[in-house]
């Protein structure tokens, strides 16, 4: 464990807390894509299959349970909470996210480390996580006003995998010199997808203006 990885995990956890805070405090999920949240549930379930079979560290186990639990809670809020679900605007959340599942699964069947159920699903979860933010970014571009909490949520969510890239650089050059092409490339694609969001987010922050993404 190095500082970049810890910072990445904490940033990821913080993004989820910001989202839960927004939904719980404002009893609203406007501007949030349910499709991205559903994809994250699939990402965590397929990534943490070894939750009970392999013990890496107490930290890993606790974080895996927190990520699975909070992502379920967010989907539950947006689908079933009597007040929150009214604020979900499915007409804005238009991305066909199920179209992402098959290509990621096929790619995992073709490109993986070992052809075992665990490894193929773990690889699938990395490919899926790289593109899971697409429905949310599309929604942000369509929704006129992006509230601060939603903007912060997406920013921290994008920053976490960027910190993981630094963690991978650190590990490769200073620790085990092991090439991990699958997480590296997936993580870079994932971070790159946020590039224009980061640009407009930092621009709006500098100019103390409301965040607006060009359509």
């Amino acid at each position: 464990m190095n500082l970049f990885r810890l910072a990445g995990d904490m940033t990821h956890l913080f993004s989820i807390i910001v989202l839960l805070l927004k939904i719980h405090a404002t009893k609203s999920c406007s501007g949030i894509s349910l499709k991205t949240q559903e994809l994250y549930v699939i990402v965590f379930l397929t990534r943490y299959l070894d939750l009970f079979t392999r013990f890496v560290s107490l930290y890993n186990t606790v974080m895996k349970i927190v990520f699975i639990g909070t992502s379920f809670a967010i989907v539950w809020y947006m689908r079933y909470h009597k007040v929150v679900k009214q604020t979900y605007n499915k007409d804005e959340d238009t991305f066909k996210h199920y179209f992402l599942l098959l290509p990621c699964f096929v790619l995992a069947l073709l490109l993986h480390n070992e052809f075992t159920t665990m490894d193929v699903l773990w690889t699938f979860s990395l490919y899926l996580e790289a593109v899971a933010i697409l429905p949310q970014l599309v929604l942000l571009q369509q929704s006129r006003n992006i509230d601060n909490l939603t903007g912060n949520y997406v920013f921290f969510l994008g920053a976490y995998r960027g910190l993981y890239v630094l963690n991978w650089i650190y590990r490769y050059f200073l620790q085990d010199h092991r090439a991990r092409w699958i997480p590296w490339i997936s993580g870079l694609v994932q971070t790159a997808l946020y590039a224009d969001f980061f640009y407009y987010y930092i621009l709006s922050w500098k100019k103390h203006e409301k965040l607006k993404l060009p359509a």
Partner: peptide, 10 residues
């Protein structure tokens, strides 16, 4: 070994 090492992150 390979598999152990690969899945040690979140």
């Amino acid at each position: 070994d390979k598999d152990e090492d690969q899945h040690d992150e979140l």
